[in-house]
Deep mutational scan, measured.
Amino acid sequence: MEQATVKWFNAEKGFGFIERENGDDVFVHFSAIQGDGFKSLDEGQAVTFDVEEGQRGPQAANVQKA
């Protein structure tokens, strides 16, 4: 698992990007966020996640709020 920071997340559209420590951004979809209830992330929030290869490149999976 990697630890990184949420760059931005649009709760209405259900997706955003996580900024990795190496500077690369990773796409995150609300369905990858672990937990119950409304799944959203806040800008600047610390998260841990795995990286999977998606249809359009790397994307976050198993996202957990740190």
Rank of each mutant, 00 (worst) to 15 (best):
M1L: 12
M1H: 13
E2Q: 14
E2T: 11
T5W: 15
T5K: 13
V6K: 01
V6F: 00
V6S: 01
V6H: 01
K7D: 02
K7F: 08
W8P: 04
W8Y: 06
W8M: 01
F9V: 03
F9Q: 03
F9P: 05
F9K: 00
N10Q: 05
A11E: 08
A11L: 09
E12D: 11
E12T: 13
E12P: 03
K13C: 09
K13L: 13
K13E: 04
K13A: 08
G14H: 02
G14W: 03
F15N: 01
F15T: 02
F15I: 08
G16F: 01
G16S: 00
G16N: 02
G16D: 04
G16C: 07
I18N: 01
I18W: 01
R20P: 03
R20S: 06
R20C: 08
N22M: 09
N22R: 09
N22T: 10
G23N: 08
G23C: 06
D24S: 14
D25Q: 13
V26S: 00
V26T: 04
V26Q: 01
V26K: 02
V26P: 02
F27A: 00
V28H: 02
V28E: 01
V28F: 13
H29D: 02
F30N: 04
S31T: 13
S31C: 07
A32S: 10
I33N: 00
I33C: 07
I33S: 01
Q34C: 12
G35R: 00
G35L: 08
G35C: 12
G35T: 09
G35S: 09
D36S: 13
D36V: 12
D36G: 11
G37Q: 06
G37W: 07
G37H: 07
G37S: 07
F38Y: 12
S40T: 14
L41W: 03
L41M: 04
D42C: 15
D42R: 15
D42T: 15
G44C: 08
G44A: 04
Q45V: 08
A46Q: 12
A46I: 15
A46K: 13
A46G: 08
V47T: 04
V47C: 05
V47L: 00
V47P: 01
T48I: 12
T48R: 11
F49W: 00
F49C: 06
F49I: 05
D50S: 14
V51A: 04
V51G: 02
V51H: 05
E53D: 11
E53W: 15
G54V: 05
Q55H: 13
Q55A: 14
R56Y: 14
R56G: 10
R56P: 07
G57S: 06
G57E: 02
G57Q: 04
G57M: 03
P58R: 08
P58L: 11
Q59K: 08
Q59I: 09
A60R: 00
A60S: 03
A61G: 08
A61W: 05
N62S: 06
N62F: 08
V63F: 00
V63M: 00
Q64L: 10
Q64I: 12
Q64V: 13
Q64A: 10
K65R: 09
K65Q: 10
A66Y: 13
